[in-house]
Simulated assay, not measured.
Amino acid sequence: MTDSPARTNWLLVTLLYLMGLLAAGHFAKVALTLGALGARYPEAGGALPLAVSMTSVAGVIFGATAGIVVARFGARRVLIVAVVGGVALGAAEALLPPFGLFMALRLAEGFAHLAIVVAAPTLMAASCTQAHRGAVMGLWGTFFGIGFALMSVLEMAFGTGLYWAHAGLLAVVGAALVPLLPRAVGRGPVAAEGWLARHVAIYTSARRFAPALMFFWHAMMFMSLITFLPGFLGAWSAPLLPLVALVGTFGAGAATRRVPPERLALLAFAIGAALMVLFFLLPGLRLAIAVPMLLAFGAVPGAAFAAAPLLNPAPADTARANGAIAQFGNIGTALTIPLFTLALGAGLGGMTALVVTLSLAGMVAVWVIFARVSPLAEAG
Rank of each mutant, 00 (worst) to 15 (best):
A268W: 06
M54L: 15
G251T: 03
T142I: 01
P242G: 07
P121Y: 08
F279I: 08
P313K: 00
V81Y: 04
R183Q: 12
L243A: 04
A288R: 10
F102S: 07
A149M: 06
P292W: 02
A316K: 04
P315D: 10
L376D: 11
F305E: 05
F279M: 07
A120N: 03
A379M: 08
A273G: 11
A94R: 01
W164M: 11
G100I: 01
L287Q: 11
L196M: 12
V185P: 02
G63H: 09
G186E: 05
A131Y: 05
G248D: 08
L246S: 00
A379L: 12
T122F: 06
V30A: 10
I325E: 14
L275C: 08
P121D: 11
P338F: 06
P97T: 05
F148M: 14
N312D: 13
V87I: 05
S56T: 14
P239H: 06
A149V: 05
A6S: 14
R72S: 03
L107A: 02
A75W: 08
A306Y: 04
V69C: 06
A108N: 06
L79I: 04
L170P: 01
A379E: 11
P309H: 07
L240R: 03
I271R: 10
L12V: 01
K29D: 03
R207T: 07
A91Q: 00
S224C: 04
F222L: 12
G347L: 08
V244P: 09
G145R: 02
L295D: 02
A254T: 13
L376R: 13
L243F: 00
A288V: 13
R372D: 12
A273M: 09
V81C: 06
P260E: 15
W10Y: 09
V13M: 08
G345C: 03
V60E: 01
G186A: 01
W164C: 05
R106E: 00
T341R: 14
F228E: 10
A307G: 12
G134V: 12
M220S: 11
A321K: 09
T160E: 15
T65A: 10
L344S: 10
G349H: 08
A23Y: 02
G38M: 01
R76K: 13
A238H: 12
P239Q: 05
V247H: 04
V185L: 07
P338D: 13
S205V: 09
L96P: 09
R208G: 13
A119V: 02
L79A: 05
W217T: 14
I146T: 02
S224D: 06
A270L: 14
G194M: 01
V366L: 09
F232E: 15
L246E: 01
A365H: 00
L275N: 10
H166F: 10
L294E: 10
L180S: 04
F279N: 09
G251N: 02
T204R: 14
V84M: 09
A47Q: 13
L196K: 09
F269S: 08
R76D: 14
T352F: 05
V81G: 01
